[in-house]
Design a protein around this nucleic acid. Structure first.
Length: 280
DNA sequence: CCGATTTGACCTAA
DNA sequence: TTAGGTCAAATCGG
């Protein structure tokens, strides 16, 4: 095959103009949301287990995820505000680091930022955290690769900002499933901050052709996370019935948020590795 | 038709 | 040499 043209262009092109100041409003809203999620968590904890028919823990896990997502967005916005481009050199981590994130306890709370060398020695900041909802960070990601990782049961998925071309945004995201919990947890690694200034706003869908921004019910995670070497006979199928999963849980959360108290029809089935069905 | 995803080959740091 | 990361043609799907 004659694929792979010579690398014609790899533009280290200059960053786009600094983002506007709608950001502050967004940050405020996200902060509010974050606080509310925390409150909701506390409220859930007060509800006796049996009133929720044993599903309180799921609900709690979901609220945590929600909180985590809000935090991610907040983090992205805040750090972007301090230093718009280039995670590098002068950096940063000191100021815009995870400290800016609302703390989330329990599973999926940890978040680390570390410095690394990029391909050609340039310095880059890498933020790593565990989450059950890798898709909910408000950015538009485009998948560009997937790899089996040595000694890991799960594949690693590679995403770059959906605006990497048109806006020269260098942000990247690596997602790797960590375990088979229910819901499964994912290790998310973010490198390079977004320079595209496109956290989803009010009406994402209306943006016609311009590729949609991820909202809480959509994501571009591939369907093959769970398929990998080690004998785990995980179902690798194209179309089974819909397996309620991460996406399910986020949808459920919005249900909860709407009618607080009625924890509708969360049908917990298949504690299997998430296959991303329904995410697309 | 066009944008997104898949997937195997290629690149490169370790 | 190898594993991880990236590229881009092929394919999918709305």
């Amino acid at each position: 095959m004659a694929r792979r043209l010579p690398k014609s262009e790899r533009s280290p092109s200059p960053p786009p103009p600094p983002p506007g100041d709608q950001r502050d409003a967004a940050i405020q809203e996200l902060s509010k949301g974050s606080e509310l999620a925390t409150q909701l968590m506390a409220q859930l904890e007060l509800i006796p287990e049996r009133e929720l028919d044993g599903r309180r823990d799921d609900a709690l896990a979901n609220v945590r995820s929600l909180s985590m997502s809000l935090s991610s967005s907040l983090y992205a916005l805040r750090s972007e505000r301090r230093e718009h481009y280039y995670c590098g050199s002068s950096s940063s981590s000191g100021g815009a680091g995870p400290a800016a994130v609302t703390s989330v306890s329990g599973a999926g709370g940890a978040r680390k930022t570390k410095r690394r060398r990029g391909k050609h020695g340039e310095e880059l900041i890498e933020t790593v955290f565990i989450t059950t909802t890798p898709e909910n960070d408000g950015f538009h990601w485009r998948k560009y690769g997937e790899k089996n990782i040595l000694n890991s049961e799960f594949r690693k998925l590679y995403y770059r900002c959906g605006y990497s071309d048109e806006r020269k945004c260098q942000a990247k995201k690596y997602v790797q499933q960590e375990n088979n919990k229910h819901p499964p947890e994912f290790r998310v690694t973010l490198t390079n901050e977004h320079t595209c200034n496109t956290v989803f706003q009010d009406q994402p869908s209306s943006s016609s052709t311009n590729s949609q921004v991820l909202d809480f019910t959509k994501a571009s995670i591939s369907s093959s996370l769970m398929d990998s070497h080690v004998g785990t006979p995980i179902l690798k199928e194209e179309e089974e019935e819909e397996v309620p999963s991460i996406d399910e849980s986020t949808r459920i959360m919005s249900t909860i948020m709407r009618n607080y108290g009625s924890y509708g029809d969360y049908d917990e089935s298949s504690p299997q590795p998430w296959n991303g069905a329904g995410w697309k």
